[in-house]
Write a protein that binds this DNA or RNA. Structure first.
Lengths: 347, 347
DNA sequence: TGACTTTGAAAAAACGTTTTTTCAAATCCG
DNA sequence: CGGATTTGAAAAAACGTTTTTTCAAAGTCA
């Protein structure tokens, strides 16, 4: 995150301190880095400089430090993880680990990872996004339709990899296209006929694809159009409320696909409260974006991509762009992983 | 005063490109930033420069860019979030939000947030930690005992705030001391007499305090020393296995305190598998480090600090250190929040 | 033809550090 | 007392950019 404010009024630098203490900047630097013994600065001068620094409230400029460069500081590449505030960032850890491994192969650079968060729909206002002043490459995720539209017409002057979004001109890593269809198949095999899909509003590119894929396949295999159950957001509470309202209103459903595990967990509660059994009365399937889905009660069946895989592919693709130059259109599809558990009747 | 025209062996810079293309660095920079129209660079030169840049694989040095400074790039302060790989980073989002709010008021600087992860126990090897080359201030969390020992003897040359660790010489934000005692009281009030505490190994400072506090208070109020149930780590699976082994071995327990919600969720499964009821046979209480604890089945009672509060306090303290200079010993205790739910028999 | 303008690009300056070099003054030693 | 050494600190160089300034050559116009 970088919040921009506009008081250009002089920052305190080694120069200010030097002026204030009446010494040279070299002496100031030596003292500030505790090199005053080797550099033979007299105790009085040390004291003067320390006092001035404390009084003025000195904050070193990290860019300048790194530019000058000490050990391992040079040849540093800055990668940004750009995500909206509203969405969780479960990928962060995986991404950093993946990046670390990709890097460990040992080449000439060191990497820093910067986290930049923006309010949903306002990616365009992010400082440094258009100029490339802040990082060398970026991984962008959790964008809204509005952000996607902005990205489609912008041209970012550095390598970018999109996660779970597909926009012309950008390489991206996305879940396999049949993420929506597969759950429909699974539920149909489970003999579900009146299926439902629980999703949030507004839809993102990914959740829309899941919903559409599910609707089509479910209709195709069962001959019955599934119910669309719309929650306010992707949270447990929203899922609970939407599902409760649906059931209360007499909605019937023997197989439910939730486009996030949070929604699935919320639905669990509504279903149980209604006195229905999972999977006996309603089979439920999620997307596997919660690591703890196997510990839901009953354990949640999921069809989705492995976060680790997604992160690894994204990291690899990003580093490739950096190494080989940008390839504008490359899209990597991460294969689905089916984890069938008790919520769809598996052992 | 001959400007050097040599090609440095290392990283590709504007200088290398200029030498390769036989032009000046100014021209290179202009072309690279798409300023060649205003700057009246001839099409042939543009082409030459583009070709050289592509061929050499140019990556701009972000530090140099930021040093030169465009709009809003100056006066930038870099904050680091330092955490071990092994632990989740649920605080990240809260921290960034809190920071953003804290910053919105003051308006002298812009901030960047850097994420630095280290393998548990090897904080000391983190590049830039001792020199302060990478950031202006840091928030350190999820350290092991070994890391804590390192911190105790190190002197980091920038403001640091520890999260949930207390080490002489560092300001810190910690959960209230009675985090372990309170659950014992609650369970005792629930008429639990044979209590147990489920924790991971090795213990961190925080989990040790919880365990110790619980043991003492439980013994004090009930007169019976609680069982210590030790899991391999803080995961659901480890909690499940430890609890299952405990119950299988004939262990009895009518009130369980888990030092992480992950452990609690694992224990849930073991308890249910054994045919026991929650809270009927075993009341369970966690620490509230999972946002979804209210959606466990039954909803998990928790005694712990609010992540948001923790993050806000940490951010505030860090910014204070930056603004006012370091205050070595300040410790902020974040008050406990009791969320009593069905797992201890609440409505 | 000669005083202008335009064109294209090189040179220089600046950003804030850290480190290396230089240098004057003080001190030492024979 | 004078050359050599030590002390303390200023000055300069370097890091890699971007922007501003300078400047030569070519073109324009009267």
């Amino acid at each position: 995150m970088s919040r921009n404010t506009k008081i250009p009024a002089g920052r305190v630098t080694v120069n200010s301190i030097a002026a204030h203490a009446g010494v040279s900047i070299g002496s100031v630097s030596s003292v500030l880095n505790n090199r005053h013994v080797e550099r033979r600065i007299s105790p009085e001068t040390v004291e003067k400089i320390r006092a001035s620094a404390a009084k003025l409230g000195y904050l070193p400029n990290i860019s300048a430090r790194r530019l000058r460069g000490g050990d391992g500081v040079k040849n540093n590449v800055v990668l940004a993880l750009i995500t909206s505030f509203e969405a969780p960032i479960p990928l962060v850890k995986h991404f950093i680990v993946a990046l670390r491994q990709a890097v460990a192969a040992g080449n000439e650079h060191t990497f820093s990872v910067l986290i930049e968060m923006f309010p949903a729909g306002r990616l365009r206002e992010m400082p440094g996004l258009l100029t490339g002043d802040h990082f060398n490459a970026a991984l962008v995720m959790n964008t809204t339709a509005e952000d996607d539209a902005f990205l489609a017409r912008a041209h970012l002057p550095y390598p970018v990899v999109l996660v779970n979004r597909s926009i012309p001109g950008y390489p991206s890593v996305v879940e396999a296209a049949e993420a929506g269809g597969r759950p429909a198949d699974i539920l149909f095999r489970r003999k579900c006929r009146r299926m439902g899909v629980l999703h949030g509003s507004p839809l993102t590119q990914t959740t829309r694809a899941r919903v559409d894929g599910f609707m089509q396949r479910a209709l195709h295999v069962s001959g019955i159009a599934p119910n669309e159950i719309v929650a306010g957001m992707l949270s447990e509470l929203a899922g609970y409320e939407a599902m409760r309202a649906f059931l209360k209103g007499g909605g019937k459903c023997d197989g439910l696909y939730a486009v996030s595990d949070a929604l699935a967990l919320g639905a669990y509660r509504a279903i149980k409260e209604k006195g229905l059994g999972i999977p006996g009365d309603v089979a439920v399937i999620g997307v596997g974006d919660y690591d703890i889905a196997p510990f839901f009660d009953p354990p949640l069946s999921c069809v989705g991509v492995s976060h680790q895989e997604l992160a690894e592919q994204a990291a690899t693709l990003l580093l490739q762009q950096l190494a080989r130059g940008r390839e504008s259109g490359r899209t990597v599809e991460v294969p689905l992983v089916e984890s069938l558990r008790a919520s769809t009747g598996a052992a």
